[in-house]
Computed example of a mutant assay.
Amino acid sequence: MRVLVAEDHHVLARTIATGLRRQSMAVDLVVSGDEAERMCLCTDYDVLILDRDLPVMSGDEVCRRLRELRDAPRILMLTAAAEVMDKVYGLELGADDYLAKPFDFAELVARVRALARRAPKPSPVVLRHEGITLDRARREVHVDARPVSLTPKEFAVLQLLLEARGAHVTHQDLVRTIWDEHMDPRTSAVRATVSRLRGKLGDPDAITADTGLGYRLHSAPGLLR
């Protein structure tokens, strides 16, 4: 899942970004409304966490403009204004959800995930492939009933491969979906993450890399499910 955080309070913005990255999300940060609009025009985000009180262009105006796009991200509006009419106004502008500051981080994560599930074809909560089981809600992975501890990036890569159901996932798709905008696509980060993931799954052939096509989960004929 890719998330854009538009928040001009630098400490809060970094706290949100760090927490979401620990939940296996790719997160970009901007501090002004015009930057938020520009980033959403250039990148396909699943969710935009939008502070209402942004410099240059207000969060209200960003929300209004993005709602004119065909493929706009889901918008979670953050604000210090907690009155009912403030919430109503924000939702009427086109926000998908509204969260007043201060907020509990666990609630923020739950709301972001709920917004992402509103996509046309949401991914199942539990994904399975042969002996691999990934529970998106509990952030747990088991291989043949054995618990496997993965880093957030390893978890996100495995989830994307499971969602592809044996189809190839390109290097570019992995970078775009899992790493933020500062990641150099020419680095070996994807290859290194896949290599560690193979080791933790206990099978060097669990993930195959096909030149020019990308990565996919290995499966014996008829066993992919």
Results as ranks from 00 to 15, higher is better:
G90P: 06
G90M: 03
L91P: 08
L91G: 06
L93R: 02
A95C: 06
A95T: 05
D96H: 04
D96E: 04
D97L: 06
Y98M: 05
L99P: 03
L99Y: 06
A100M: 07
K101W: 10
P102A: 09
F103T: 08
F103C: 08
D104V: 15
E107K: 11
E107Q: 11
L108Q: 13
L108M: 15
L108G: 12
L108I: 08
A110T: 15
R111P: 12
R111E: 13
V112M: 08
R113E: 14
L115R: 07
R117L: 10
R118P: 07
R118S: 10
R118I: 00
R118H: 11
R118C: 07
P120G: 06
K121M: 10
K121Y: 09
P122A: 12
P122N: 12
S123C: 14
S123H: 13
S123F: 07
P124Y: 00
V125R: 03
V126W: 07
H129E: 15
E130H: 13
E130G: 08
G131E: 13
I132D: 01
I132W: 01
I132P: 00
I132A: 03
T133C: 08
T133Q: 11
T133F: 03
L134C: 02
L134N: 01
L134T: 00
R136A: 09
R136F: 00
R136Y: 00
R136P: 00
A137D: 11
R138W: 04
R139V: 08
R139F: 10
R139H: 14
E140W: 09
E140F: 09
V143G: 05
D144P: 05
D144V: 03
A145Q: 13
A145Y: 09
R146E: 10
V148M: 03
V148W: 03
S149V: 13
S149R: 10
L150P: 09
L150W: 06
T151K: 13
T151Q: 12
T151S: 15
E154L: 03
F155I: 02
F155G: 02
A156P: 01
